[in-house]
Amino acid sequence: MKPWFFVALFILAGAVITFAPLPVTAAAPARRTFRVEANQFAYAPAVLEVNPGDTVTIELVSTDVVHGMFLDGYGLSVTADPGQTTRMTFTANRSGSFRFRCNVTCGALHPFMVGKLQVGKNRWLWRAIGLTVLATLAILILPPNFPKAETG
């Protein structure tokens, strides 16, 4: 009887980990402005973190040659010449992580000029870690010959 109790417990815990709303409630939408410097062949900062619903303004400043920024998922793009800061403003209404990349051929390593926009926390990472820990516990706690032990 005892192993079945554990199995039920693990299944319940697994369901909780997978579906429970995380205590980090969505922060109130805010206005965020990022100044992103583009220099061959990188963005600084290369990772932008925002909360879902934020109004995000990205100021693209090029410090060497003409660069661009195309934001995957949102389909937005801007081009910045040195001395001409350009801005793009959008509402981060799609959560997840999105790549942005240079869309102006700027030199030899242009294809590798990428950055990341992270909208919201990466919850599935934490849920996956929880499920992995749970599975490890299950292997350790349940008898090795389960479920045969129950019939025997």
Partner: peptide
Amino acid sequence: FAQNCAACHGETGGGNGVF
């Protein structure tokens, strides 16, 4: 000015452009 000068003389004319 924005197109030709600001890269060196700065967008606000402060002599502090990106170059």
